[in-house]
């Protein structure tokens, strides 16, 4: 016998879920209706360039953040002593980093990468030549996004490594593996699916972020795709922002903006779908009935 209170609560939960689902459907449907037509018929130059720029900056971000993030996770999970104060500080810092608003990363990127690292490189490599590295470009945008992606990669990878049973490490150690060998031949391969999930989630998040690239390299319009890491670039998210706010004729830019949004959504949703599949595989692998 269900009590009335339970039934009311159940109904409220269902309502909340329905609202959420409806909102999502409404967003996707309206964008798709406006956007897909523009995607097919409209002028697609800007959109193509923005897509290429997004790919380029995401690639640089991945290159910078994955090795650093995974190695940090390996250190935290396999080598750091939990009772050390430094370990606790690193862990707290990583978690704090995850909560920083992305616009702050943008300002940090401008201050640190563009002005400090970039100008510093210019002084050493190209004295008297003006700004080569010391200006916003796709490289610094990628680096800034990498800082944003790091905590996601570190936290998920560390958790994946911690889920690897200790018996596995001991099996390797007992066979004469060093700590490093046990880590890279046993723990990390065993945690592979979990690590990959974190990486894909981080890429998905980074690909859609606009704030960190605002001051570090995104351009309203460039005549061509970035072929040099020191060039500015167009980005789907920024392109959407520019079309919606900077255009002299906002109404005529709407279809193009919707098309951009569709593309951006497609990119992030498909990356999240990949992450889901990988996580599913990780869970299956971890359960004992996983065979073959």
């Amino acid at each position: 016998m269900k009590r009335a209170g339970d039934r009311v609560l159940g109904a409220l939960c269902a309502l909340a879920l329905a609202l959420l689902a409806l909102t999502l459907i409404a967003i996707v449907a309206s964008l798709a209706r406006e956007g897909t037509a523009a995607l097919v018929t409209g002028t697609r130059d800007g959109l193509a360039l923005a897509a290429l720029g997004t790919a380029a900056v995401t690639f640089i971000m991945t290159l910078c953040s994955v090795p650093l993030g995974v190695l940090t996770a390996v250190y935290l999970a396999e080598f750091a002593r939990d009772e050390d104060r430094s370990t606790r500080w690193i862990r707290a810092a990583v978690r704090a980093l995850a909560g920083v608003p992305s616009i702050v990363f943008g300002l940090f990127g401008l201050g640190f990468f563009v002005l400090f690292v970039g100008r510093g490189l210019d002084r050493v490599l190209y004295p008297g030549l003006g700004a080569v590295f010391g200006r916003p470009c796709v490289l610094w945008s990628g680096a800034t996004l990498a800082v944003l992606a790091l905590p996601v990669i570190i936290v998920t990878s560390e958790e994946a490594l911690r889920r690897v049973p200790n018996e596995q490490r001991e099996a390797a150690l007992a066979l004469g593996a060093s700590r490093i060998e046990a880590t890279f031949r046993v723990s990390l391969p065993a945690a592979r699916a979990g690590v990959l999930t974190g990486v894909v989630l981080a890429i998905g998040r980074g690909a859609g972020e606009v704030a960190p690239i605002l001051f570090t390299g995104a351009a309203n319009f460039t005549p061509e795709a970035p072929t040099d890491a020191r060039a500015m670039f167009m980005h789907l998210g920024f392109h959407l922002y520019a079309l919606s706010t900077q255009s002299t004729d906002a109404a005529s830019a709407r279809p193009a903006a919707a098309a951009t949004a569709v593309l951006l959504l497609a990119v992030t949703l498909s990356l999240n779908a990949v992450a889901l599949v990988l996580r599913d595989r990780a869970v299956k692998r971890a359960s004992p009935e996983a065979r073959r």
Binding site: P165, E167, Q168, E170, A171, A172, A174, L175, V186, P189, A190, R285
Partner: peptide, 12 residues
């Protein structure tokens, strides 16, 4: 000095 553990722990 090799070792065999309590629970079989084959590596993946």
């Amino acid at each position: 000095i090799g070792m065999v553990f309590q629970r079989p722990n084959p590596l993946p």
